[in-house]
């Protein structure tokens, strides 16, 4: 893995996501990363539709985006965190995402212990004032030492 002590956050996140085949398959892109925070985007894709009549993206694809975004928020929290895995993730679906629009996830790792990281995330489409979904989760923390 990348040497955590001198890593560039955005660069690290891009390399991290590029190594995750499922995230690549869903077309996820890193928009912004800062310590404990991450913003990812997933372009609209007809293959990810769950409701074909309305053309709405499947909740599972939104989950995958928020899960990945949460994981990046955890590994970017501090340089000693080398890896993470999801322990649990709860998603609340507020409304269907508007067809044709990219979905953006913003995640924050708001607390971390030696072994566990706590994350909240939100999924948005172009209407940034009305979230599509929110998530809260606990992640494992794999440290260097």
């Amino acid at each position: 893995m990348v040497d955590g002590r001198q890593r560039d956050n955005a660069e690290f996140a891009r390399a991290f996501i590029a190594a995750l085949p499922h995230s690549v398959a869903l077309g996820m892109q890193v928009i912004d990363v800062s310590p404990g925070q991450a913003v990812l985007e997933m372009p609209y894709d007809a293959r990810f539709v769950g409701d074909p009549d309305a053309g709405i993206i499947h909740g599972g694809a939104v989950s995958a985006l928020m899960d990945t975004c949460g994981g990046i928020a955890v590994v970017s929290r501090d340089a000693e965190v080398l890896g993470t895995a999801t322990l649990d993730l709860r998603i609340d679906y507020m409304r269907p995402a508007t067809p044709g629009q990219a979905i953006r996830a913003e995640a924050e790792c708001y607390h971390i212990t030696r072994s566990v990281a706590f994350v909240r995330a939100v999924a948005l489409d172009d209407d940034r004032d009305r979230p599509v979904a929110t998530a809260t989760g606990a992640f494992t923390v794999e440290r260097a030492s």
Binding site: H22, H58, G59, A64, T68, G71, A85
Partner: peptide, 10 residues
Amino acid sequence: HGGAIAAFLE
């Protein structure tokens, strides 16, 4: 991937 698992279960 945790997201793929979540999507599978949902």
